[in-house]
Design a protein around this nucleic acid. Structure first.
Length: 279
DNA sequence: ACCCGTGTTCGCTG
DNA sequence: TCAGCGAACACGGG
């Protein structure tokens, strides 16, 4: 379930589960999720988790081993997730890689669709990764200055919803957050990106940050960060939809009461919006 | 059987 | 050089 908020949750979980622990062993159930092949993960054995960072949807984990650090890059794709289990428990469905830790727990990387990837980064030199090269500002780490958003949108002639999916515009926004942010900004997703007025860009920047903050709260990030609550974050597939418009086609608008929330397809992806109050 | 899917990259076109 | 676009990747779930 990975856009910026879910990846941030994964970061907090991994930090909690892994920090200071050593990797005892690795089992690769499906080498397709390992960039450069399964043997590329071997250097992780014996390393100690030190730091857990995130850029957009990318997890950047640093481990200590000997005198030079080791990096572990993890992108969750569409269906990737990190899960902690006791070695006596059954592995989660679609577990592709497992890391055995020195506290007798196992971290599983599970990924049904296999769009996610793991990669060991020698020397933790994450700057060299092409996946990070063209990322725009990360709204949670460094905020989202309207001027910078305006600059990124200025050269795009596509609908603003489509532009928001480009990670070089804003790092971490995905298909759900794009619809949610545009609703909060009261902007029609079909508006051309480079035609937004300065005030509309400001509203959009605010909407993006508000949507991410709302999702983080709904998914329990505050409890995790404060060290309370269940240490095993497990999303409930049957749980209530925490979003304001996403996947709510036909419902009345929670803001204006009219709507109804409408689903359209843009660049092959679903967008949801209120035709009555998004202009 | 058919359509849909929280992501990204690649090759082609203008 | 680059924005834009569609296909491809892979495997369920409804």
């Amino acid at each position: 379930m990975p856009e910026l908020p879910e990846v941030e949750i994964a970061r907090l979980c991994l930090q909690r589960w892994g920090k200071g622990r050593h990797v005892r062993g690795i089992t690769v159930h499906d080498p397709r999720v390992v960039a450069n092949g399964a043997p590329a993960l071997r250097p992780l054995v014996g390393a100690r988790f030190a730091n857990f960072d995130r850029r957009g949807k990318n997890l950047l984990i640093t481990l200590d081993k000997g005198r030079s650090p080791l990096g572990l890059w993890s992108h969750l794709g569409m269906t990737g997730k990190w899960v902690r289990r006791s070695p006596r428990e059954e592995a989660p469905k679609f577990s592709r890689v497992e890391l055995a830790l020195d506290d007798d727990q196992v971290l599983h990387y599970a990924d049904m669709r296999l769009f996610g990837r793991l990669r060991v980064v020698p020397g933790a030199a994450f700057e060299a990764l092409p996946e990070l090269r063209d990322l725009g500002p990360d709204p949670l780490r460094e905020g989202l200055p309207p001027a910078r958003l305006a600059e990124a949108l200025a050269r795009r002639k596509v609908p603003v919803k489509v532009a928001l999916l480009d990670q070089s515009v804003v790092a971490g926004v995905g298909n759900i957050q794009a619809s949610e942010a545009l609703f909060r900004a009261r902007l029609d997703p079909r508006r051309t990106a480079n035609a937004l007025k300065p005030d509309e860009v400001r509203r959009l920047a605010t909407g993006i940050r508000a949507s991410i903050a709302h999702t983080l709260k709904a998914e329990g990030a505050d409890r995790l960060a404060r060290g309370r609550g269940d240490i095993t974050y497990v999303e409930e597939p049957g749980g209530p939809n925490p979003f304001v418009v996403y996947d709510r086609e036909g419902e009345s608008c929670p803001r204006c009461g009219r709507g109804p929330i409408t689903r359209i397809v843009q660049a092959g992806r679903a967008s949801y919006y209120c035709p009555s109050c998004q202009r």
